[in-house]
Amino acid sequence: MKLEFYAPIWGFDEMDFDVFIQRVIDSGFDGIEIPFHMGLSLSPEHLSKIKQIKSAGLKYIAQHYETVCLDIPQYKKEIRQRLELLASTEPTFINSQTGRDFFSFEDNLSIIDECEAVAQYTGVKLVHETHRGRFSFASHTTEQFLNARPDLKLNADLSHWCCVAGTLLDDQEDRLHRMFGNMHHIHSRVGFSEGPQIADPTAPEYASTVARFLSWWSSILDKAQARGEQSFPITTEFGPAPYMPLEPHTQRPLCDQWEANIYIKQLIKENYKPVTTN
């Protein structure tokens, strides 16, 4: 199974887009994951960027996060419109931050069904990111949705679950492994029990935390290979402030965001050992 690595635009929004694309290519990424601050329409600038990505021979993941309104019918209307727009740009797939953590189970499930309907009739794959503030904010609540919708596809950003639990999920291992088969995308940011992002993945004091995340990611990849996937997408998602810790007073980042993502990409490639069968 081939690993496909995507670079996030997050943190590099102000960089000249041509320069960013060249940097992505030079660093050996297969594509870009990008959200569009689009309201309920796509601007010529959005469409131009998509064209640039594709013209450069890169793939792209369309990211949805904007729908946050409180009225359930309006929420469903808006998320449908945004997902339809993103699907029309023919991304590799859509990664969606879906629902709200304080919506009822029934309301979040109806929103998920709305999203899945869009995926079905557009033919564009959709994954739901495990994310604070969304229906998937914690492992135990997410499992309830998987029990109701066993084919639900997830993007594993496990740093969020560590934050919510205040642990490295040591006491939830069985639940995690039950859900790993539903994970079709990885955001390979390393979090810890008190935050969504460690200060520097190369620092020796974080070695055991990094190793734990690597073990989770390897298990997800094994499950993907077992279900017959030919490739698997990974977005290296170490981000800027406030995810990136800053030095007090100077506000200097404690590590280089781009270099952190290059490092974690290489670490995954070195660590991943495809399952072989005789």
Results as ranks from 00 to 15, higher is better:
Asp26His: 09
His131Ser: 05
Glu33Tyr: 08
Ala211Gly: 06
Lys269Met: 14
Asn271Thr: 11
Ile111Gly: 03
Lys54Glu: 10
Thr89Gly: 05
Tyr263Thr: 11
Val210Thr: 10
Pro245Arg: 07
Lys273Ala: 11
Thr67Gly: 10
Ala62Cys: 06
Pro204Ile: 04
Gly11His: 11
Leu58Gln: 06
Leu254Asp: 04
Leu254Gly: 05
Ala117Trp: 09
Ile61Trp: 08
Asp170Glu: 15
Gln197Phe: 10
His131Val: 10
Ile220Leu: 03
Ser215His: 10
Thr122His: 13
Pro196Arg: 08
Tyr60Ala: 06
Gly28Tyr: 10
Thr236Val: 09
Phe93Glu: 04
Leu146Thr: 14
Arg23Lys: 15
Ile111Cys: 04
Gly191Pro: 03
Cys162Arg: 02
Pro196Leu: 12
Ala165Lys: 04
Ile198Pro: 01
Ala224Gly: 12
Gly133Asn: 07
Gly57Pro: 04
Pro91Leu: 12
Phe105Glu: 11
Asn155Ala: 15
Ile268Glu: 02
Gln63Pro: 00
Asp13Glu: 15
Gly28Asn: 12
Asn278Phe: 00
Phe135Gly: 04
Ile186Met: 03
Ala7Pro: 03
Tyr272Met: 03
Ala119Tyr: 12
Gln225Ser: 03
Phe213Tyr: 14
Val124Gln: 07
His160Val: 01
Gly57Tyr: 10
Ile94Arg: 05
Asp174Ile: 08
Cys115Asp: 02
Cys162Trp: 02
Cys115Phe: 05
Cys163Arg: 01
Glu143Trp: 15
Asp256Val: 08
Gly11Asp: 10
Tyr206Lys: 05
Ile32Cys: 08
Arg175Tyr: 00
Ala156Val: 07
Gln120Asn: 06
Tyr206Ser: 05
Glu143Ile: 07
His46Thr: 12
Lys54Ile: 06
Ile268Gly: 01
Asp107Ile: 06
Asp13Ala: 13
Trp216Gln: 02
Leu254Pro: 01
Met244Trp: 04
Cys255Met: 04
Tyr60Asn: 11
Thr89Ser: 12
Thr276Val: 15
Gly31Asn: 02
Gly166Arg: 03
Lys77Trp: 06
Phe180His: 09
Pro44Ser: 05
Ala56Met: 05
Ser159Trp: 00
Leu83Met: 11
Leu86Pro: 02
Met179Leu: 14
Ile94Asn: 03
Pro240Asp: 14
Gln251Asn: 14
Asn182Ala: 10
Lys153Cys: 00
Arg175Trp: 01
Tyr243Asn: 08
Thr209Leu: 03
Asn278Leu: 11
Pro240Ala: 15
Ile220Ser: 05
Gln120Cys: 08
Asn147Val: 10
Arg175Met: 13
Asp101Gln: 14
Pro248Asn: 14
Thr122Ala: 12
Trp217Arg: 00
His160Glu: 00
Gly39His: 11
Thr250Glu: 01
Glu78Lys: 15
Gly133Ala: 07
Cys69Tyr: 06
Val24Phe: 09
Gln225Trp: 00
Pro242Cys: 09
Gln74Gly: 00
Ile94Thr: 07
Met183Ala: 14
